[in-house]
Structure formats: structure tokens, C-alpha cells
Design a protein around this nucleic acid. Structure first.
Lengths: 243, 243
DNA sequence: AAAAAGGACAACTTTTTAATTGATTTGAAT
DNA sequence: ATTCAAATCAATTAAAAAGTTGTCCTTTTT
């Protein structure tokens, strides 16, 4: 589990179902700082906390939803499912991020699936509670929108990639995206399989493997078991830009 | 995928998200036969269909829920999570069964987790829709209650087992339970790991392995790779009864 | 048509996970 | 105190999944 997570004071937290030693985790994440005491109380009353084990689905594309997830600890990946075999990885979800926010405003199904790369603690907040607080507290809404638009920008660049770029450019993109997370979560690459990388990049697993080797041969990266070290950011982002 | 599932006419079904060739699966399962045309329409309007891939969670213990799942094809297991390491398997979920029904009536969180043993097609029906139809159509409610009480009886025997019986009795119980499903789903044992069996039985994986060998030595069962063949139902149910 | 990009398949290797076994410890029941 | 049931631990083996590589095929670009 990452070190630099919004601390909730305890490790080895339990689900709310263990009555013997109930764990109370306050809402202390940055984006909740804007809330007044009654608002905090209101959110708290409409939330629950769940431990997702590594591999568990946090959300399932197409399933009805009545809540938003807020990741407290752990890392997850968000992905799109198309036919039963194909998967496209959209992004890594970090502590402090929301999942399923769009269902608060329109539709009532999850648009994407997501699954836990490590054990994950998450708040589940009923959408009425979130909606009410957003309407009531402009600053909170502002933070949310900010987060959301950032994610949206990422989606746009994903689409750009898929449209314009070829293998090299896309893989560079994926590597740079993940590498940017590495400062905060040094284990990020070791949590992902080659298939995961392929699903981020939108190419086959085999091509990914081969291209990674080529990148290594060209001195752009270094493959250390599952970990990947970027040796030449400059050229890699050149490749990423040129496609 | 099992052969004898409530047929919906097609194989290789797709999620509702694939607009190119949308799959429409009518509500034809036995328990929906009691519904009048308007009721069927009402349910249909408040449902969606999702393909859960093998390993996916259908439900997550502690997560808010606003819907009921109805399994169309595939097999799943339902289990209880306690601390992050321990799991207790409650039952196998077969096509034609509901999941999360209790949340329609009380509480709004899933009481158990469940995950797909094979790819699973499921309806998700919003709980208001189910509730309304139950109130409206006594026969439908009757079928539902019948199903539910049967499940409940199983839970009672599970509790009895945990309280009174020791290893031999419990494992016999688990084996007989699963073997009863084997007629309809011959692959049932091959879908479960030794840990799964242990989690059904409530004993350690190692003890399960050892006891299975003992049972085989005593001619009660035959271990054929992952498959298990019951050779002596009589004695096994003796052991199950005696504890 | 030729070349390049990239997927698909098949064979193989490595790594990871699951299963198995024996030895040791715990803990309740007699 | 002794016994038995069963968990835990450590070590080993077996099976499954992930990763790798080469070849060949298809599609797009030129």
C-alpha cells in the first residue's frame, strides 16, 4: 500500500461489518476540507466504507448505481469492456479520487468498470448526499469540477492517441503517463501486467512485449523485471508527440 | 457455460453497451412466467443486462445497492468476507436465482459478496420495480418467497454445521451439496479450487487437502484432477449426519 | 505492387499461484 | 495431564498464467 495516502490514522482497517472493533474513518481528504461541519455530518451519514480486496471490482460497467466511490487508500484501474475478450484501460485511480461521479448527474449506470490493483479502502457516498452538498457548497463543487475536468482532458488525449498515433507513440504515451505516477507510487509498474500495458496502449500484448524490448535496446527505458525505468524522457516524449 | 440454462436464444451475448448489435433477452425464466404482460413490460423497463466476466464481482459486501440481480447464465459463488484474509463460501448461484433480494426490503447494502465462476449474464432490476410487482402480483411474490426460504434453510444448515460438526462431517456436507449440483452442472468441481472447498467447509486449505485424500483412501470419493466423484453417497451422508 | 504496421497464432520459457506433504503448535475436551 | 482435532508453518511439487519469440497473415499506406 502506498505511503503517501490521505491518512486515516489506522492501518489494517476493517469493513463496517465487523462490529467487534468498528473502524471510524473521518472525512479528511483534501476535497472534503471545503465542507462545513453540518455538511461533513451529512455526507458521513450517507456513506459507508468498504474494503475492496486486490482484484475486486470497484465498479462494473453497465450496473445500476446509487452512489459514488471515493478512494481512500490503494490503487485501482479503470477500464472499458467491449466484447467479452477486449479491454481498454483508461486510467489509474489514486487515493483522493472519485469513481462513478457521472451517474450522480445523468444516467444511473456505471460507465466503466474498475478493479483494485492493491487492497483498496473506499467510501461509498449515496448520490443524493453528494448532489445536495454540491448544490449547497460552491467551493466543494468547484474542487469536484476541477478534478473531473482534469480526468476529462486525459480522456481527450486518449482519444487523440487512438486516432492519430501508432504503436510507438502510444506506448511512449502510456509509459510517460505511468511514470508520472511513479514518484508517488513507485510500485506502479510492478502492479501491471504486460497485458495491462497493452490495454492502456490499445495494441496487442505481443506487440507490447516486442516494442518494450526495442525501446530498451534503443536506450529509452530499462526493464527491471516488472518494473520499468525511463532513461530518456526527452526522446520518449518526442516519440509520443510525433506519434 | 452450462448447457441447461434458461435459454435466451443466443450464445456469446454482448453487453447492452454494444450498440452495433444490441442483444435483447426476454424475461423467460420460470419465475417470471407469473407476470402479466404489463408487469413484464414494467420489469423490462427497469432492468439492464450485464455480462460479468469470470472472476468479476457480481456483488460486494457492504456496497450500497439499488437493484437485484437475476442470473441468466453462468455460475457464481456467494461468500462472506470478514477480515482481509478470511472468506466463507455460502452457496453456488445458479441461473434462475436472485442475488441481493434482501436489500429490496431492508437496508440498502449488499449483505454478501459474490463472484463469477464462469462468465455470467445477469439482469439487474431496480428494486422499486421488483417491489412494485411483488405487491401487485401475489403469485410472483409466492415464487420469490419460495426461492428465498429455500436459500434460508440452507443458511440454517450451514450454521448448524459450523456449530456442531467437525471436519469430516462438514467436508462431507460440502461435497454432497456440490455433488447435488453436478447433474445439472457437471463442471462444478473443476470450477472450484481447494481453497474454495475449504472456504465452503470452514476449515483450512491444508486440512481440506488431507481430508480429501483420506476420503479417497477410504473409498468414499475419487479425485480425478480437479473433479471429485462421489463413490459412496450412503456413508458420506452418514458422516455428514453424525458430524 | 511493394513496403510498413501491427495483429494472430504457435511454441516455448519464466513466473506465479495452487496444491500437497510433513512437522510442529495450539487449544479444547476428556 | 493427556488426547485428539485442527490450525499453522515451512518446504516441495505441480499446474496455471504470464511473458517471450519467431513466423506468417492482413490491412493500410505509399
Amino acid at each position: 500500500m502506498p505511503d503517501s495516502t490521505p491518512s486515516c490514522g489506522k492501518r489494517n482497517m476493517k469493513t463496517i461489518f465487523e462490529t467487534d472493533r468498528e473502524f471510524i474513518c473521518d472525512i479528511q481528504a483534501p476535497c472534503f476540507r471545503d465542507l462545513g461541519p453540518e455538511e461533513t455530518e451529512f455526507i458521513r451519514s450517507g456513506k459507508t466504507q468498504v474494503l475492496f480486496r486486490k482484484g475486486d471490482n470497484l465498479t462494473k460497467q453497465g450496473a445500476f448505481t446509487s452512489y459514488v466511490l471515493f478512494l481512500i487508500t490503494g490503487l485501482a484501474k479503470q477500464y472499458l469492456e467491449s466484447n467479452s475478450t477486449k479491454t481498454f484501460n483508461l486510467r489509474i485511480i489514486r487515493p483522493g479520487e472519485f469513481l462513478g461521479l457521472s451517474a450522480v448527474f445523468h444516467g444511473n449506470v456505471f460507465g466503466c468498470s474498475s478493479s483494485a490493483l492493491t487492497d483498496c479502502q473506499a467510501f461509498l457516498i449515496e448520490k443524493e448526499a453528494i448532489a445536495k452538498v454540491i448544490k449547497q457548497n460552491g467551493q466543494f463543487g468547484f474542487s469536484l469540477i476541477r478534478k473531473y475536468t482534469e480526468q476529462n482532458n486525459n480522456l481527450l488525449s486518449v482519444i487523440r492517441n487512438l486516432n492519430h498515433k501508432q504503436m510507438n507513440g502510444r506506448l511512449s504515451d502510456t509509459l510517460l503517463y505511468l511514470d508520472a505516477l511513479k514518484t508517488e507510487y513507485p510500485e506502479i509498474f510492478t502492479l501491471l501486467s504486460r497485458k495491462d500495458l497493452a490495454d492502456f496502449t490499445g495494441i496487442s500484448t505481443e506487440s507490447t512485449v516486442k516494442l518494450l524490448k526495442t525501446f530498451e535496446k534503443d536506450g529509452l527505458i530499462e526493464l527491471q523485471d516488472k518494473d520499468i525505468v525511463i532513461k530518456n524522457h526527452g526522446i520518449l516524449s518526442e516519440i509520443s508527440k510525433k506519434g
